[in-house]
Design a protein around this nucleic acid. Structure first.
Lengths: 258, 258
DNA sequence: CGCGATATTGAACGACTTCAAGTCGAGTGG
DNA sequence: CCACTCGACTTGAAGTCGTTCAATATCGCG
C-alpha cells in the first residue's frame, strides 16, 4: 500500500491514472501517472477563484468545500458542496477560467493536478468518458437545484439536501453513523434559496417530528423514507409537531435525491 | 444571394460552414459544407425530447422555442427560451442524450444538422471554439437564472427577463420596435419560479409606473434604465402606482441583463 | 471564564400564492 | 356578420409561507 493511499482515493476519479501500474492496465495508450502534488487548505481559504484561469484541478483528499457563484450584478450564491473524493475545479466546455470560486469549509487537504497533465490523459477514451460523465452529472445536479429552488417548498428543498448529503456520506463508507454538517446554516440557506433562520427552524421541525436528530452540526437521519416523502411532497409537513410516533411504512419508490 | 438566406442566418453559429465558400476561407482543413435540411415545426410541437439520443442539432430560422426540464421526481420547469438564430439541442460534455426537451412556442422553421456532421466540423479549431463558447455562455445563463430564482424578488426577476428579451430582440435588428412575447404567462412564471398571476400583476405594475407598455403579448420597453434599476434592486418598486412622471436619469452603469 | 461566532426561537410583517371571478381576443359555426 | 366558445390573461381578496428583526442560547476557543 503506497503512502498516498487515503480512504478518499478509492473513490477518486483519477485513481487509475494517479500512480504506477494500479491494476493490470498496461494498455497501449497508458500514460505516465499523474503523481499529483498535495496541499493543505485551512478552513475558509480559497482553493480557486471565479474568473481566474484554470491552472489545475483539485481532488479532495480530506475535508470539504463549497462552490460559490457571484453573478455579474454581485449577487452571491452557494451552488454546491464537495466532499472528499470529489474533484474541484473541473470546468465543462473547456472553459479557460473557473466559473465559480471554491472555499474550504474546514481544514482540507487536496491533490493538485496540473491542467496540462489532465489534458494529456484525456487522450485516453475511457478516462475521458469518465471525466465527461462526472461533468454531466454535475450539470444535472445544478438543474435539479434550479427546479428545487424554483418550485419546491422550503421543507422539500432541505429534505432533498439532507438526503443527498446522507447518500454521499454513505457512499464514502459512513454506514449509518451520524454525519457532520461541515457548512454553516447560512451556506445551506444560500444553496437552497432560503434564510438561515428558515433552515434552522426547519431542522428543528424535522427533529421534532422524528425525521432526524440534530444538534448544531451533528446530524443523524432517523427516518429516511419520511424525509423522502417530504422531499416528494407526499407529506405536507405539519406546522406544529403532532404526537405522531406511528412507524412509517417505506414508500417503496425511494426517489434518488438531488 | 442563395435561396437559403434568411435574416436569422446572419447570426447563426454555423453560417461559415453552412454553404460553399462563404468568405475567402479556403483554409487547409476546410470541410464540406453542412447543407442542412430544413423542417417546419407547428406551435406546441416537440423538437426533441429530454432523455432521447442526440441525433441532430437545430438552428432556429424562424419562430421560437422553450426548453423544459423535468426532474427525476417529475417536477417540470422551463429553463430557457430560444429565438431565431439560436441553436437548439447542443449538449455540453458530449452528452449522448438531450438534457431538456424543446417545444416550439409558435409555428417555427429550423435547420437540421446531423450530429455526425457537426462532430466532423468540430475538428476545425476555430469552429470548435465558437461552439464551446456558446455552450459556456448557456451554462452561465443558467447559473444567473439560479441566482435570480434563489435570491431575487419577483420584480427583479421579471425585469431581468424583459431586459434580456429586449437585448436579444435588438441584437436581431429589432431596433426599438415593440416585441412580441411568444410564450404564455405560465411559461414566464415557470422560468422565473413564480405563478402566472404574479407575472401578470407585475407586468401591469410595470406598465402603471411607466416602465413598459403591455397588452397581452404585445410588449414595449419604455424605460430601460428604469427596468435595469428594478433588476438591480435600486428601485424597490412601489406597491401602488404613484403619479410619477419624472424623467429618469440614466444610471450610467447599465448592467448586462441575464 | 468570558468572548465572538453560530445557532435557535419568537413575533410581526410582507411577498407571493391560492382561489375565484371576470375580461379579452381569436377562431368557429350558425 | 354576429354569437358562441374556449383559452389566455387580468384582477381581487384571503391566506400561507418565509422573511425580518430582535432576543436568547450554545459552542468553540483563547
Amino acid at each position: 500500500m503506497s503512502d498516498h493511499g487515503s480512504p478518499s482515493c478509492s473513490l477518486c476519479l483519477f485513481r487509475h491514472v494517479c500512480r504506477d501500474a494500479p491494476t493490470a492496465d498496461m494498455s497501449p495508450n497508458a500514460q505516465k501517472p499523474l503523481q499529483p502534488a498535495q496541499v493543505a487548505v485551512p478552513a475558509g481559504n480559497v482553493l480557486f477563484r471565479q474568473g481566474r484561469p484554470v491552472s489545475a484541478v483539485f481532488p479532495l483528499r480530506q475535508g470539504s468545500a463549497k462552490q460559490v457563484y457571484e453573478s455579474p450584478l454581485g449577487w452571491r450564491q452557494v451552488t454546491g458542496f464537495s466532499l472528499s473524493g470529489d474533484i474541484l475545479g473541473l470546468e465543462p466546455n473547456e472553459a479557460p477560467a473557473h466559473s465559480v470560486s471554491a472555499i474550504a469549509l474546514q481544514d482540507t487537504e487536496c491533490c493538485v493536478v496540473a491542467i496540462e497533465a489532465l489534458r494529456t490523459h484525456m487522450a485516453d477514451p475511457a478516462f475521458r468518458d469518465s471525466v465527461l460523465a462526472v461533468m454531466r452529472h454535475q450539470a444535472e445536479r445544478e438543474r435539479i437545484l434550479l427546479v428545487a429552488v424554483g418550485s419546491m417548498k422550503a421543507a422539500q428543498r432541505l429534505a432533498m439536501l439532507l438526503l443527498d448529503l446522507d447518500t454521499e456520506h454513505r457512499r464514502r463508507g459512513g454506514a449509518d453513523g451520524p454525519l457532520t454538517l461541515a457548512m454553516p446554516r447560512a451556506d445551506i440557506a444560500s444553496l437552497l434559496g432560503l434564510t438561515l433562520e428558515t433552515v434552522s427552524r426547519l431542522l428543528s421541525r424535522f427533529a421534532s417530528v422524528g425525521l432526524i436528530s440534530v444538534r448544531q452540526r451533528r446530524l443523524r437521519l432517523v427516518d429516511r423514507d419520511g424525509l423522502a416523502a417530504v422531499y416528494a411532497d407526499l407529506e405536507p409537513m405539519p406546522r406544529q409537531a403532532p404526537a405522531t410516533t406511528a412507524a412509517r411504512a417505506g414508500t417503496g419508490d425511494e426517489p434518488r435525491p438531488f
